[in-house]
Design a binder for these strands. Structure first.
Lengths: 186, 186
DNA sequence: TGAATCAGGACTGATTTGATCCTGTATTGA
DNA sequence: TCAATACAGGATCAAATCAGTCCTGATTCA
């Protein structure tokens, strides 16, 4: 339910890794070992990214994968599409654009705006956004002290670019929700 | 993979329906029949919405459900949460905030911004946005009298609030993607 | 040639989702 | 009072999806 698959996660992790060593190749095993990912599954993911023209494979000894495009030119949307297929928000949205559920699906068109907004978010987020962020390693501290607070202090420009302008969304009759409400699952 | 469940779809359809008949009750069967949804599954969904305080159930003959809050005060985020549980973008995001996949998950913090942006989109979209949109019906209206007209009078700039300002997200080195690229799955 | 690496199909087990069934309770109206 | 109507919710089942593995083959390099 509105969640990326593990394969998509793995793909983003791998791409972030490749972006951190520009020009160099990294084998599937290298990446899998570095992040404790299942090797064979990661291999599938990298194959899909290769077919999508995001990375290039090099066979043979000392082979591996390399990022063949600028990290800033690879969006999360493209990665997710390459790995999981088209992003479809509701079952109303099918390739042929009709709702097979019922003749009178009343929510398809309204939800299209939501769908497009989510695509927009994913399309703006790039591998360079992944690579630029500081890596927070949890190894030394097993119990997170207060991850929410720490995550909220340092807010680079990426967040500003992503979060839609606050205030413009407030409409008449719309109950204002607090930030804490939006993020209550953390 | 980044898709709403059918239950969430059904919930939104049902809420849109209830919003179209303000104050009145509609039974599970009424709604299920109107949109050709499985009755028993829709019943589950409405129970969840009832527990979440979004609708109120009325037992007995002529009973059913009624929307007990203003449609503009019920966000899609709240509906999805009530039906599917917390929205979690990646497997890195768990209730306790740690990544069980690996010690050094490099994408969790960057993706948190994407996650928050998606929550923001869902949080801004309300049931009134669903109800106000024109319904494209392929079959003649069977049920509601004409509640749509009354609900359509007040119409703020919903679309403007949802679609993020074009151009503000363009950053250095980012390849510009055409609109048609973003929405290629349609 | 042999080791290292990618390519890709087939397959399996686990999880999630969608849907149904059944029993019980509450309310209405004849 | 009682039957009909409708919600409440647990148990269950089937299908779909996901995560992961296995195997065979091709490519490259030392």
């Amino acid at each position: 339910m509105l969640k990326l698959t593990k394969k998509a996660d793995y793909g983003l992790i791998a791409l972030r890794h490749l972006a951190s060593v520009p020009g160099a190749t990294a084998s599937t095993k290298d990446i899998a070992d570095a992040y404790h990912l299942p090797v064979t599954l990661l291999a599938k993911v990298l194959q899909q990214l290769s077919r999508a023209g995001i990375v290039q494979s090099v066979s043979g000894t000392n082979g591996g994968y390399k990022l063949i495009r600028h990290p800033a030119a690879v969006s999360a949307l493209e990665v997710v599409r390459a790995i999981d297929g088209p992003v479809i928000l509701t079952h109303c949205f099918t390739e042929h654009g009709t709702c097979d559920q019922s003749d009178n699906c009343t929510v398809r068109e309204p939800l299209r705006k939501v769908h497009e907004a989510i695509l927009d978010v994913l399309n703006r987020f790039t591998i360079s956004d992944l690579a630029e962020s500081p890596v927070i390693r949890l190894t030394p501290l097993p119990v997170p002290v207060n991850p929410v607070a720490s995550a909220r202090t340092a807010r680079p420009a990426v967040a500003a670019a992503l979060t839609t302008p606050s205030g413009s969304g407030v409409r008449s009759g719309r109950a204002l929700l607090l930030e804490s409400d939006v993020h209550q699952e953390f």
